[in-house]
Amino acid sequence: MTSAGLQLDRVSRRFDVDGRSLLALDAVSLDAPAGSFIALIGPSGCGKSTLLRMLAGLDQPTSGELRVGGETPLALQQRGALGIAFQEASLLPWRSVESNVRFPFDVIGRMTQADRERVREMIALVGLEGFEQALPSQLSGGMRQRVAIARALVSQPQLLLLDEPFGALDQILRRSMNEELQRLWLNRPVTTVMVTHSVDEAIFLADKVVVMSGRPGRIARVVDIPFPRERPLSLLASAECRELEAELLTLMFEGKPSDQDDSQDECRHG
């Protein structure tokens, strides 16, 4: 399976809360080519997670269209072509590491010899060889998160969704996991959408950083990250990176959509 580009066309999502209608996402449009890494940042309640859930086919837009490689997320679901990792590792506590990584194949309902091989390979890739039979409760937080990443990638998805995957880890562990994720991703660049609160994580990993503003959720700006791959962690200390970080932080705190003229080709916001 090859990975797929994203097309979001005026996607809106309304929630009914206590009888009031709440606009969580207001006509968000975005295009991204196949194989790009997109980071969604923004204040809490700006609709990042709503957007991610819709890309996962777990929620449907009230209006507008989402396409992944021309297909709806639901169609991708049916083919088992999605992968996801959450903030908490969300492993099945009764399954071993190996069994947790294998889980997508159990749900999809087919597992070839190649898939079996792939499970082994993923466990090795995230550095958990020798822990195949360990239970989640016997692992550290970082190891659990590695299992979750391996699980998300094992079915070779066309779209990888990451919901603050390292949000529960400490800063040092987070950096090393960022490095590891970049390595995995460069190994096979899959279209990836990651929600994060950490601006430097977004800069380090993403090709494009989508800055969102809240209430209602809109895209404030899409910023291309110019740094070449493979990026070293020392990049984060460089002056260019610091400058970019400051710019993104300002955008986030302004919390207002920018003017139409400022928008980039990929971004048409409502």
Partner: peptide, 22 residues
Amino acid sequence: DARLLDLVRLYGGGRWATLRWI
């Protein structure tokens, strides 16, 4: 855990798959 249910749905599993696996 709602995320475990989401996970099954994400791989195209329905009610029965949720019951069986989770």
